[in-house]
Computed example of a mutant assay.
Amino acid sequence: MATNKNTAKTAVKNTDKKSKKSDAEKFTELANIRVPKALRVLKSISSLANDTKYEYTDAQSTAIISALKSAVDDLSECFKNGGKQDEETFRI
């Protein structure tokens, strides 16, 4: 019976080694999940622009657009800097 336990442990270890993914594979897998999710959320936010269903001010729509553009700019900077976010820069 000890052999069966050892065989089972070895099989689990071998399975773990085979299931390890490269960083590129993990990136692709997660990007293929996260980007479509983000796009669905953006489409959902864009439905708020329907002025027959919702009432909003120019200031509110500008705030939403500004926040989203800022988030995209931050995302772009992360890719340029290898995932490292720069410290906030003061601008007048």
Rank of each mutant, 00 (worst) to 15 (best):
M1N: 03
M1F: 03
A2Y: 06
T3S: 07
N4V: 11
N4Y: 10
N6E: 10
N6Q: 11
N6M: 05
N6H: 08
A8Q: 15
T10D: 03
T10N: 10
A11Q: 14
V12T: 14
K13H: 07
K13E: 12
N14F: 03
T15Q: 14
T15I: 11
D16F: 10
D16E: 15
K17E: 15
K18G: 00
S19L: 14
S19Q: 12
S19F: 10
K20C: 03
K20Q: 12
K21H: 03
S22L: 02
D23S: 06
D23Y: 02
A24R: 08
E25P: 00
K26I: 08
K26L: 11
K26E: 01
F27C: 04
F27K: 09
T28L: 06
L30H: 09
I33F: 02
I33T: 12
R34E: 01
P36C: 07
L39F: 11
L39T: 13
L39K: 12
R40M: 15
R40N: 15
L42F: 11
K43T: 14
K43M: 09
I45W: 00
I45Q: 02
S47Q: 11
S47K: 14
L48Y: 05
L48N: 04
L48C: 11
A49S: 01
K53D: 05
Y54D: 01
E55S: 08
T57R: 08
D58A: 14
Q60M: 12
S61N: 02
T62E: 12
T62Q: 13
A63V: 09
A63M: 13
I65V: 15
I65F: 02
A67V: 01
K69Q: 13
K69A: 12
D73P: 00
D74N: 04
L75Q: 04
S76R: 05
C78G: 07
F79M: 06
F79K: 02
F79W: 09
F79H: 04
K80D: 06
K80L: 04
K80F: 00
N81H: 07
N81Y: 01
G83E: 00
Q85Y: 07
D86G: 11
F90K: 14
F90S: 15
R91H: 07
R91V: 10
R91S: 06
